[in-house]
Amino acid sequence: MAELNRTVLYDLHVSLKAKMVPFAGYEMPVQYSLGVMKEHLHTRSAAGLFDVSHMGQVILRPKSGDVADAQRALERLVPVSVLGLKEGRQRYALFTNEKGGILDDLMVAHYGDHLMLVVNAATKHDDITHLTTHLSELCSVEPVNDRALVALQGPAAEAALARLVPGVAEMRFMDVAKFDHEGAELWVSRSGYTGEDGFEISVPNDAAQGFAEALIEMEEVAPIGLGARDSLRLEAGLCLYGSDIDTTTTPVEAALEWAIQKVRRTGGARAGGFPGDTRILNDLAEGTARRRVGLLPEGRAPMRAGTLLFDAEDASEPVGEVTSGAFGPSLERPVSMGYVPTPLSDAGTKLWGEVRGKRLPVAVADMPFRPATYKR
């Protein structure tokens, strides 16, 4: 077994008595002393601090000096409008392959003279190779290896972070900006993956532990592990790459067509021109055979990833499958998401999931399961 990497905050996790587990090639905290349930609820009611330093941070810098050239170049690899992204703003994007499948989902931020990308941990090396292979003539692709990344999420996140960095209170959802904190330059986005208001903060490695400790010392802030991060994003209806989306799913099958702006669609000024455009534009026009949907199982038993779905209690062949599932502490009930045939994708449709050899009822539901609280 390959040796696991550690983030710069590893010693802090150990000192906080975190339970460490392997995740995406790293040794990461799955929970702390509060436990997954209480960590989840604390994030919803106050503020939680997450170490997400395992994710990839990449700078895309135009060789011409004109950031619009980097924006145009990146549009070769994603179906979203990068040229439409204004300075000081961030946007969700997708790397696609020639068949229209999803190589990764990512965030793209415009910092004036360069773009900043945050990609998933398990795919970051492939993503960097992908960027370098296709864009290196126009842009320098610069992996950021000297910075940690933390996420502060929850209704008290603004008040907590503003004690250290007052300017963040003026930011709105998907704004990005740079701030100074005790001589360290912070790269801050008002975003996250919990459905809560909050921030992701890129911090120089040598300042990361002190910065994290200063936040955790605040009464409303608690350290939060991967367990609660997963249940939070699931309640928010957000995809986990490798589970809910992958190279076998297209953006439209995954119900992510909202991320494809009109200008990149058929009839738009910059329509197509990205990998898999024929398949994806056809999906947008004609629809797909299957769709990602929310699922609400009856009772208390979660329907986890891999649970087969049937259109009748006595049906012999499954029609779909759960891709993520857990107990939703905020909702006090299990929640799942998965893929079903499009004719069965309307909210309220009754299906059956096979759990430990038994068929249990489950209803298709709209997502998010819990409304987002982003500061717009």
Rank of each mutant, 00 (worst) to 15 (best):
G325S: 03
I280G: 07
Q57K: 13
L149Q: 13
N205K: 11
K19F: 10
R356A: 13
A236E: 04
G276S: 14
F179R: 05
Q209A: 12
H42N: 04
L295M: 00
P297Q: 04
P22Q: 04
Q57I: 14
V58W: 05
P22V: 01
G357R: 02
L256D: 01
F179N: 07
N97A: 07
K99N: 13
D113T: 13
A365Q: 00
S189E: 14
A93C: 02
G48Y: 00
R265Q: 15
D244F: 03
L138E: 09
D104A: 00
L94Q: 08
M171S: 10
G320D: 00
S316E: 12
L309Y: 00
G328A: 11
R291Q: 13
V188C: 06
S140P: 09
A212N: 05
P343W: 00
V108N: 01
G88Y: 11
G84P: 00
L34I: 03
H42Q: 04
Y26A: 06
V176E: 05
L103K: 10
I280K: 06
R333D: 01
S316F: 09
T123H: 06
F199K: 08
L238Y: 06
L103I: 11
V364P: 02
P371T: 04
V364W: 01
C139A: 02
A222W: 11
A222T: 15
A162R: 13
T7H: 01
S189G: 14
V80Q: 15
D244C: 10
R91G: 13
A157M: 09
T7D: 03
N282M: 08
Q153W: 02
